[in-house]
Design a protein around this nucleic acid. Sequence first.
RNA 1: GCGCGGGUAGUCUAGUGGUAGGACAACGCCCUUCCGAGGCGUUAGCCCGGGUUCAAAUCCCGGCCCGCGCACCA
Length: 567
Amino acid sequence: MSEIMEMLIRRGFLWQSFEIYGGIAGFIDYGPLGNGLRRRIENIWREFFVIGERAVEIDCPTIGIEEVYIASGHATSFTDVAIECSECGKVYRADHYIKEKLGLEIDESVEAVKSVLEEFNLKCECGGKFKDPEKFNLMFETKIGPGKGKRGYLRPETAQGIFISFRRLSDYFRDKLPFGVAQIGRSYRNEISPRQGVIRLREFNQAELEYFVHPEEKTHPEFEKYKSKIVKLLDKNNVEHEISLKEAVEKDIIKNELIAYFIAKTEEFLLNLGIDKSKLRFRQHKDDERAHYACDCWDAEVLTNYGWIEIVGIADRGCYDLSKHSKHSGEDLTVFVPYKEPIKVKKKVIVPEMSKLGPIFKKKAKKVAEELKNIDPEKISGKIKIIVEGEELEVPDECYSIKEVEEMVHGEKIIPHVIEPSFGLDRITYAVLEHSFDKDFVDGEERKVLRLKRWVAPVQIAVLPLLSKEPFVGKAKEITLKLKKAGFFTEYDDSGSIGRRYRRYDEIGTPFCITIDHQTFEDNTVTIRDRDTTSQIRVKIDDLLIVLSQLLNSDKDIKEFGEIFRE
RNA sequence: GCGCGGGUAGUCUAGUGGUAGGACAACGCCCUUCCGAGGCGUUAGCCCGGGUUCAAAUCCCGGCCCGCGCACCA
C-alpha cells in the first residue's frame, strides 16, 4: 500500500466499504475527513460551474427506467458481448475481436456473435475454441415495484436526468439559450474489475454541467478573459502543444471556443483546489476512443501514483441526447430561436372554402378544413384525400383555393447542442490529497504534512491548550465554541504534548493551530501557527475571527496579521 | 474474467507444524512554559469456510479482499 493510502485510511479520510464482511471491490466509505474534503470540493465546484455561469442545479433519481437508456444508447453500447477461449482462458470483447480478425462490423448481440463464430469457425489466437459468448452490461439492473416489476437501471451518469427534463428546464430559462444545468450526485457502473484504490469505483460521485447552446454559437461571453491563456494540450494524434486557447481554436486543435472556455475554467478550478499544475494536462480523445454520444472530447488528466488518470471529461455531445429522447418519447425538445429581424417569406397556402365544405361534409367540415391547412400545396397531385375519424374522404377542387401569401417568420426551432464538462469527484478528491501530500524536516525531524489549500481543508483550525490542565483547557474550549459558531471547521485537542498535536494536525492538513498559553491570561492574546512554515504569530482574541477569515480565504502570509511569536 | 504475488492489532511488521511477539498510534493517570519528550498502566490481531494432523497463522482446497500484468474502462 502506498504511503498516502496508508495515511488516508489511518486518519479517517476513507476506507473500504463492508470491511467487517470481507469487503467488496469498487466501493469506499468516506470517513469524517474525506467526506468533509469532498463537500468542500463540491461547494467550490458549485461556485465555479453553477453560480459563476448562467446555470442552475437540479437533483434527479439515481434509478432510471429502461426507456431512458434505450433512448440514450446505453442499453446497447453499454452492453458488451464477451468471448472466452476454452483452451487458454483469454477473454475478448467480441465486437473488437471480430472486427480485428474478420473486418466485420456486427450487432452486439449474443446471437449475432454466435453465428459469426460458427460461420467463420473463428478461433482464439492460441488456436483454442471459444466458449459460448456471454453478455455483460455495465449498468446495474434492478426491478421497480412488486412482482415482475418494471426493469430499471442505476444511472451510469447523472446527465440523462437533465436531458429528460429538458422541456421544464428550458421553460425555467424562458427558452433563452445559452443556459446550463448541473447535477451533483452518485452514479453507478458495474465495473468488471475495479482496481487502483479509489480510481475505479462501482459507485461514484459526479458533478456534471450540461451547457445548452445554439449549434452555431459555441462560444462563451467570457472566453475573452481566457483566450490568451496558455494550456498544455495533447491532441488526438498524440502531439503535444503548449499554446494559447485562442490559437488552439484557430488551428482547429480544439473544435470550438466553448470547449476551450471550459478547458480554461476547469484548469482554474483544479488549480484552486490545489492540483499541481505540472502534473495536469488536457488530452483529446482519439477518434476510436470517443463515447457513442460525443463528437469531440477532452479529458483533464493528472499524474498520480497510478500514472496519468482522467479526472474531468469535457465533451461536445452535439444534439445527440436531445434528438434521441425526442425521437423515443415523441416530445418536442426544441427551443424557438428568434431571428434578429423577422424574415418575409412568400409561400403558397391552401385556403378552405367553408361555404362549399359545409354542405358536403356537414359536421366533419371543420376537421376537413383543418386537415387541408396542414397540406403543403407544392405536394398536391390530383385529388386531395384526407382521413377524418378513420374515414378517407376525397375533397373536391372547388372546396379550396391556393393562394400565395407573404408571411413574417420570426425565428426557428432548433435542437440545442450541449457541451458537457463532467467531473469525477472521487478521483479529484484523491488527486488533491496526493498532490498535497508532502514531507519536510522540522528541527531535524521528518514531518508528514498535507499542504491542502486553506479553503478546502476539512479541519481548518485546531484549538490547543499548551498544557492539558486548567485554566488552559477551559479557555481553549471557550474559543473552540466561538470559532465553531462563527462557521469555521474547528477541533479541540488536549491529548499528548503540544508538539505531538501539531504533527497530528499537520498530517490531516489543518492550516492553522490556535494555542492558548500563559500569556493568554496576561493580555488576552493567543498564537496562530501556520502549518506550512510552522511559524507563529500572536493576536488578540477579539481579532481572531477577522484574522482567521482573511487567512482562510487567501494564501496570505500570517506575518501580515500579527506580531511574530516564533519563526 | 485469466495469470503471478500477497492477507498477522487502527497502521507497519516478526513468526515454515507445538503458549502470537514488537514498533508506532489510541486511551487513562502522572509529568510537561511551544513542535511526534518521559514514566506507569490499558485496549487491541492470525481474512472467511472446509480439509490434513494429536496439534495449523504456518501445509492442502475453495471463496473474499489487496497489489501487479493481460483483458475491460461506453
